[in-house]
Design a protein around this nucleic acid. Structure first.
Length: 467
RNA sequence: GGUGGGAUGGCGGAGUGGUUGAACGCGCCGGUCUUGAAAACCGGUAAACCCGUCAGGGUUUCGCGGGUUCGAAUCCCGCUCCCACCGCCA
């Protein structure tokens, strides 16, 4: 959520931000509702002040009167009661007026809140303006000496690559047919060394982030309430992307949603808290199953392990002080951790600066990391794919957008006793099975065997080669 | 699923109709003392919103929503959540 006060003071910033992000939201209407609401509130508050003043004035008198009424009788009592009634009349009139204004506010609130939740965080000035992911900008690439992604896989290795699908079938690492029987399209069952490799990369990544980089190892719920989805900024925009567990249909008090990322659980941890500045930054890591409906992606990437409804992801989250430079610094740190991880696996990758149209509502800036995948890209006349970089990681910088919605604040020396909304950031550490695509395809040998990356061998019982 | 208990400020915990936005303790901040620190003592310490250029003024908030009342943390109704025990169970 954005700061309504800031929006009021500088609406053009937010209008331009929404425009750059290609998000339609009626900011003028929001400002109009806000102005109406404040006018009503101001009126109501002065009525309340008056009411309180009168209360204090007549309270003691009324108390006295009531005492006398108790003792009195007959005509005297009637007279006293009439007098008491007069005292009561003024505040009662005020009360009615206040009540009317209350219902005015109640009438304005739903639309105002709905619009407010829709206003995206403006992208940072240094984010390239663009309509969609096609206009993302490559920042830099990395590749091991042994592989140059500018050339084809065949030119690098001397043989045409097989896809992860073929390789995994060859070694009994996956069973798509039975998976589809169980759970429909975009499902998979990892088997044998497929499942072992999946666990190995997750374990390696989790140890990497929690041991080497000292992020706090944490488990999180993956089934959460709607408030948590709204608070983390995934709703309302991403409502169609999340699976809903409709408990209300069977008489429950709430519906639940399956989270699409561990970020939701990690960010939800401290909602409504006022943190001690000295405790910041909070650095968390989790590994969790992620669920995505992939609504609107029908027909896209249907084969293999690239775009699936359920996967497991090691995620890193940082909650830090509300300081742009600090946010930016942590963003780079989180990206650096992933680069270190990918380099240890010798996977070629590139960094992409996402353009404004690809940021989504909650990000000020987002850097995607794409690994080189031999089986992707255009296919040539002989049926060999060119290979292409494809997204495996996404590092977001959100400023206080999430923390404002989650009501997550901190207080300390630098805030001068005030409470301030924290900043938050998140980044993938490793998402599997998608990351298995480059791992398997890049480590294939001409005979179809797969060399297990050295870093993963300790988690594969020392296995050096599959097949 | 059954039965009972509870929800108060950063934390613990008082408070059952009228300066209670809230005792007391802890924590935190400042001061005295001290070479320094600790201890002790003294003082301070909720959040959000609105109006205002400032100074300042005002409103709301004791789980949430509604009601009674001149006046509600305190009384009434509804809801949500949490805890304990029993039952079932990975």
């Amino acid at each position: 959520m954005i700061d309504l006060k800031a929006l009021r003071e500088n609406p053009d910033l937010y209008k331009e931000g929404a425009r750059r992000k290609r998000i339609a939201v009626d900011i003028d209407r929001l400002l109009e509702l806000d102005a109406d609401r404040r006018a009503v509130m101001t009126e109501q508050e002065s009525l309340r002040a008056e009411q309180k003043r009168i209360e204090k004035e007549i309270g003691p008198k009324l108390g006295q009167l009531m005492g006398r009424i108790k003792k009195a009788s007959g005509e005297e009592k009637a007279a006293l009661e009439a007098e008491a009634e007069q005292f009561r009349a003024a505040p009662t009139r005020l009360k009615e007026q206040i009540h009317e204004l209350d219902s005015k506010i109640t009438a304005l609130d739903p639309e105002l809140n709905e619009l407010l939740l829709q206003v995206p965080l403006p992208p940072d000035e240094d984010v390239p303006v663009g309509a969609s992911a096609d206009e993302n900008v490559q920042l830099r690439t990395w590749n091991p000496d042994s592989f140059d992604p500018a050339k084809s896989f065949a030119d690098n290795r001397g043989f045409a690559p097989k896809s992860h699908i073929d390789l995994m079938h060859m070694h009994g690492m996956v069973d798509f047919e039975r998976a589809v029987k169980l759970a429909g399209s975009r499902s998979y069952v990892l088997t044998g060394d497929g499942m072992r490799l999946h666990n190995a990369i997750l374990r390696y990544a989790f140890d990497f982030i929690t041991n080497r980089h000292e992020f706090r190892a944490t488990s999180v719920p993956v089934i959460v309430r709607e408030e948590c989805m709204i608070g983390t900024g995934f709703f309302p925009a991403g409502h169609d992307q999340a699976y809903r567990v409709s408990e209300t249909e069977r008489g429950g008090t709430h519906d639940y949603y399956l989270t699409g990322t561990g970020e939701v659980g990690l960010m939800g941890l401290h909602q409504d808290e006022i943190l001690d500045e000295a405790a910041l930054p909070l650095k968390y890591a989790t590994v969790s199953t992620c669920f995505r409906r992939e609504a609107g992606a029908a027909g896209k990437d249907t084969a293999g392990l690239f775009r699936i409804h359920q996967f497991d992801k090691v995620e890193q989250v940082i909650i830090c002080k509300a300081d742009e430079h600090e946010s930016r610094r942590w963003h780079q740190t989180m990206i650096g951790i992933v680069e270190e991880l990918l380099q240890s696996l010798e996977l070629p990758y590139r960094l992409l600066q996402c353009c404004t149209g690809d940021l989504g509502p909650k990000n000020a800036d987002m850097i995607d990391i794409e690994c080189w995948m031999p089986s992707r890209g255009d296919v040539d006349a002989s049926g060999v794919p060119s290979g292409a970089y494809s997204e495996t990681h996404s590092a977001s910088r959100l400023y206080d957008f999430q923390c404002r919605r989650l009501n997550m604040r901190y207080k300390g020396e630098s805030t001068g006793g005030k409470t301030v909304f924290c900043h938050s950031l998140n980044n993938t550490v490793a998402a599997s099975p998608r990351i298995l695509i480059p791992i398997i395809e890049m480590n294939q040998n001409e005979d179809g065997s797969i060399t297990v990356p050295e870093a993963l061998r300790p988690h594969m019982n020392g296995l050096e080669r599959i097949g």
